[in-house]
Every structure is written in C-alpha cells, then in structure tokens.
Design a binder for these strands. Structure first.
Lengths: 131, 131
DNA sequence: ATTAGTAATCGGAATGATTACGAATAAAGG
DNA sequence: CCTTTATTCGTAATCATTCCGATTACTAAT
C-alpha cells in the first residue's frame, strides 16, 4: 500500500533538517509552528504524513512514552530517554547500551525482540531547582 | 483538586478485581465490555475515571507504550514488558531488576529518576509460529 | 435506622491528537 | 515541455479520552 518512490519536497526535507538540529524531541504541532512562517500554506496533515514517511525511511523514531501526544527523534541510534513528569521535557541518555540488551534479552525469551524502549521517568534538573 | 476520601463502589472494585485476575493488560473498552453484562447501565467514562482513581491510589499502572491507546496493569511491582508489534499483545517480563536500575541511573544523572519504563518491542511467540 | 453531605454514576457532549479525503499542485523522468 | 503521479492543502472524520450536569448511592453522624 505504501509507495515505492519518494519525491523530495521542501516541506519534508525541512522537517528532517529541523529535527536533526534539535535535541528537544519535538511534537508535530511544534514543527508546524516552526515551519509556518516559511511555508504559510503549510497543513498540519502534511507534517504528520511526512513524519510517517521519514519514519518509514528509518530517518527518525516516533516516541510515544510519556505524554498523550507523540514526539519525534532524528537520533536513530538506540538510546534511552529521560522524561520529566513535571514539565514534559525529554532528554537523551547514553548510559545503557541498548543493542547489547537486545541480544541478552533474546536469549531469555521465546519472542523475537527487535528493539527496546527504555525511558526513565522522574523530575528533571530544571524542575528540581524550582522546589 | 483531587478528593481526599474515596468511597467503595461496586464498579470500581470489580474493575480492580478483573485486572488482578488477568495478565493481559486490558484496555478501558475491554474492561467496559467485560463488565457491561453485570452492570447494564455502565458508562465508559466510569471505567476511565475509576482507572484514574485506582492509579492515584497506587493500585495499578497505566501502560502507554506500544499502542495508540492505554492499557492497565494491576501488577505494580516494577517489571519490563514485551509488546508484540504484530498482534498488540503485551507480556510481562521479569529478567531485569528495575529497582536496581533506578538506583544505578540516579547516580549517573542530575535528574531525579523515580521509575523506569522498559519495553521490549518485537514479534511474539504466537505470531512467529504463523510465519 | 434516618438523614445530610458529597463522591460517584450515567449519558452524552466536548476535547485533542491523529488520520483520511478529494481536488489542486509540483517533483521527476522522458 | 509533457506526462505521470506523489505530495500538498484544507477540511472533515476518527478515535481514545475527558468533561459536564443531573441523578444516584456511599458513608459517617445524628
């Protein structure tokens, strides 16, 4: 059902560019707001569709843990996240080697583990300061 | 804003009872369907509200990784999950000690890690058989 | 047991994120 | 420059979840 050939559009490449230059794991509507000045006729649906296509192409990952809305991460190397339950911000973490975990876990289950979602939930440094 | 005193209602205690007697991590609407015969006037909003109250009371956990809808788990001991990307089923895993991880990670970050969400994504044993 | 106070219920309407639609547009190859 | 069709835009639809107001039913105090 998915098409075989992708075309390069200004909108899609800008979405990826923005995602590659931030570590804040944006939402679709944040991306929409960022791009609206440059693309006055931009549609929110376009942002969502392109995020889906970029995920199909393996250029980004969709993050759904934490909030009621999705966030997107162009850092596709498997890594853990810290999600602040106060302010909703997400930080990258690099202290655990996910690929090693996948191997280890696969030896222990009858299922086929392909990837691991690991998020630390808690209160971030900034929110701790405010208390 | 949340009330201090909770009352015992048939609906709420049955929700918890069902959750305690299954390991399938049900959704709100599955619980609704299960209970509808016994409570013909049951409202879906009642299920959602009670799931929220039970979570407030620490009697269950909301699982949001994996699907676009929430699932609920009355096993409140920290444990990992396996989420099948084919059929959507969720299995409990016990091979990693989450509490130990929380301690370890807290020494490595300036944030305050309170809990860990760990899910293995992949294809479950049943779906593997069908291929 | 009765009553008063107020959580909790039900039903339906509202919300918010995401997806689907159809007509118009614009990449990309010939 | 044409043709093809993936992509866009705008809007409507979808889906899970939350909110609302009127009614019901726990619970503690009388």
């Amino acid at each position: 059902m998915k098409s075989e050939t992708y075309r390069n559009t200004k909108q899609r490449s800008r979405i990826l560019e923005i995602l590659c230059h931030t570590d804040s794991h944006p939402t679709a509507s944040w991306l929409y707001d960022q791009m609206k000045p440059e693309f006055p006729s931009l549609s929110l649906g376009t942002v969502y569709r392109n995020l889906g296509i970029l995920e199909e192409q393996g250029l980004l990952k969709k993050l759904r843990s934490g909030s009621t809305f999705d966030r997107y991460d162009a850092n596709t190397y498997p890594h853990a996240h810290f999600c602040c339950t106060e302010c909703g911000s997400i930080y990258d973490m690099r202290d655990v080697e996910i690929p090693d975990m996948v191997q280890t876990v696969n030896k222990q289950t009858p299922h086929n583990v392909l990837e691991i979602n690991l998020s630390y939930m808690g209160i971030c440094e900034e929110c701790l300061k405010k208390k």
